[in-house]
Design a protein around this nucleic acid. Structure first.
Lengths: 160, 160
DNA sequence: TATGAAAGACATCATGT
DNA sequence: ACATGATGTCTTTCATA
């Protein structure tokens, strides 16, 4: 689909670690002329290999505890209701600033990543705002205790 | 914990959308002098409100289909084995480049976000690399069909 | 902490190898 | 793909309030 060579990949890896590196710094690290780095980055942007530049918010602004909640809606008598109900749940959750991520799986399952100060406040939030939703077949809560890969995802998703 | 005022938040929101905005562009958007914006960003970095700058990889480099896999290990006779076995599973998964995210929940549950070309290849990967793991009590696979909030997470997590 | 002005660093582009 | 230089823009610093 898109052919990247080693130089492209090296540039992308450096920018992922620190997107404020100047072109001259990248050029020096990779032992290439600045003009080449400049040209490559321009192409990577044009081809859409780089979607955009962004910042990661620090731990000071992140929730201390995060849980993944998986909820399954009861299949209603009237088929059409299910989709509308599930979409309603997703919209409602997505609006909340402590809800970091919302997605659908299949027709009846919603997954949400929820942040809070600690396990207690998270549990309270889930009890009050999720388990009270009508017509749920089941709710699973997985508190995230240790992230082995992709840890930075919290700082990326958190609202400001 | 960390007190941000409206100007700080406005700057952070702008940078989240596009971290390549120059200080002068931000200054213009927010009707403040460049030196003030410069000063604020410097403070935001010092205080750790901004962890670092990064890039999001585009759709061209992203897996087309993503699934969340939740796996629970069987509780062994010898207590100490569980932690070591779960850690082993996490380390093994984290090494794979199509595994975007790995985390632990409680003592016996591992969650992984896995990317693939399509649902079939994803299913094949899970069958071959996850369901074959010994001593599993259960494996749940949730294919992610529609992301309502936090969609950009894929481009953020994908390896290059 | 906020601002204005000035100096230095940088990206960008054109041209040529 | 690489080199070089010219140009304008941006960052950074510092003095001041």
């Amino acid at each position: 689909m898109m052919q990247l060579d080693d130089l492209d990949r090296s540039i992308l890896r450096l920018l992922k670690k620190d997107a404020r590196l100047t072109i001259s710094e990248i050029a020096e690290k990779l032992n290439r002329p600045e003009s080449t780095i400049h040209f490559r980055i321009k192409k990577l942007l044009e081809k859409g290999a780089i979607d955009h530049y962004t910042i990661l918010l620090g731990e000071a602004l992140q929730p201390k505890k995060v849980a993944l909640v998986v909820l399954q809606a009861e299949t209603p008598i009237i088929e059409d209701f299910l989709e509308r109900y599930v979409n309603h749940i997703m919209r409602t959750l997505a609006m909340l600033s402590n809800v970091l991520f919302v997605a659908k799986s299949g027709k009846d399952t919603v997954m949400a990543l929820i942040g809070g100060e600690n396990e207690e406040s998270l549990e309270a939030f889930i009890d009050e705002n999720i388990k009270t939703l009508p017509t749920l077949k089941g709710v699973h809560v997985y508190f995230i205790d240790d992230i082995k890969k992709g840890e930075e995802l919290i700082g990326f998703l958190v609202d400001v």
